[in-house]
């Protein structure tokens, strides 16, 4: 009998799926790493585990402690699953306008949700969590945007898995959130082959939820700055909500039920495929479609779905 003794052992080692039938260039293969196969349902299980284990190792975190983190969803969900398995209390600061499924997932794993105003977006959640961390120093503040364990999880896990399964990779395309995936995987792949190009895909936040009163409220994750993200990336491109939804539907048409940011990343991969003569593009699909059913992304009129994206955080 073969079995695993902890849910945590199921994190990582996700499959690479050939989705070249959707490639706009017959000389370019596109392979998608399906991070939705992680037990918490997203790529963020990897960094959640890495940050918690790192805090345990350094003595910052021990049994009975309370963890605090800002998250628009997936990091919170990963932390909630692991906190339950390891016996920690978890508080997540989350904007109020995320999909209902994200909140429901967090509650199912027993996390406490502290809501931040929707109009302030993800930047607002970060600010609120920082303030709370100062007021309550007994909380263990993992802070994914600045925690070196975040990119390290991808440098030691996701990157080597991709190179093991597809050493012929020429382009790596992934979404830019905390920048952990791009920094970790990008640095690893370039260390193996400096010719590999790293493309960042940025889904623009809804214009109602960019969370800014002035440009000085802007936010760049410290891990992006500290790891010279600007030098590592070869290209950074935005994908509109409409393109993201269109591509999420194309993916469903070949049987792949992926989250909305995966649609954005696939749109970016298609752009990349059109721009090059030949190559092998590896993309990261951060999660599956389950948490976005309530957005109507697959079922409703596309104009309505795109309009709703102006005031919702889909990514």
């Amino acid at each position: 009998m073969a079995y695993f003794s902890s849910i945590l052992e199921l994190i990582g080692n996700t499959p690479l799926l050939d989705v070249s039938s959707l490639s706009p260039n017959s000389q370019v293969r596109i392979l998608a790493k399906l991070e939705g196969q992680n037990p918490g349902g997203s790529v963020k299980d990897r960094i959640a585990l890495a940050m918690i284990e790192d805090a345990e190792k350094t003595g910052r975190l021990s049994s009975g402690d309370t963890i605090l983190e800002p998250s628009s969803g997936n990091t919170g969900i990963g932390l909630a699953m692991i906190s339950k398995a390891k016996g920690y209390t978890l508080k997540i600061v989350m904007p109020e306008n995320v999909s209902t499924e994200r909140r429901a997932c967090l509650e199912s794993w027993g996390a406490e949700i502290i809501q931040s105003p929707g109009s302030e977006g993800s930047n607002g959640a970060v600010r609120h969590a920082q303030k709370l961390a100062e007021e309550r120093p007994e909380y263990v503040f993992l802070y994914q945007y600045a925690n070196p364990a975040n990119p390290r999880a991808h440098f030691e896990g996701t990157g080597p898995e991709i190179f093991r399964d597809c050493p012929e990779v020429t382009h790596f395309v992934a979404g830019l959130g905390t920048s952990g995936t791009l920094i970790g995987v990008g640095s690893f792949l370039k260390s193996k082959n400096p010719q590999v190009e790293i493309w960042a895909i940025e889904p623009p936040s809804g214009e109602m939820v960019d969370g800014l009163r002035s440009l000085d409220d802007g936010y760049i994750p410290p891990i992006f700055v500290e790891n010279n993200g600007e030098d590592l990336l070869d290209r950074r491109t935005i994908v509109s909500p409409r393109e993201s939804i269109e591509w999420v539907r194309k993916l469903a048409s070949v049987g792949v039920f992926a989250g909305i940011s995966s649609g954005a990343v696939m749109a970016g991969a298609a752009k990349c495929a059109r721009a090059i003569d030949q190559g092998v593009i590896v993309v990261v699909f951060a999660d599956g479609g389950w948490k976005y059913l309530s957005t109507g992304a697959w079922s409703d009129d596309i104009d309505q779905v795109v309009d709703r994206a102006k005031s919702m955080i889909y990514f």
């Binding site: 977006g121 993800s122 994914q144 945007y145 889904p203 960019d210």
Partner: peptide
């Protein structure tokens, strides 16, 4: 032109 915002 877009402002820099967080994700995650």
């Amino acid at each position: 032109i877009l402002p820099a915002v967080a994700g995650g």
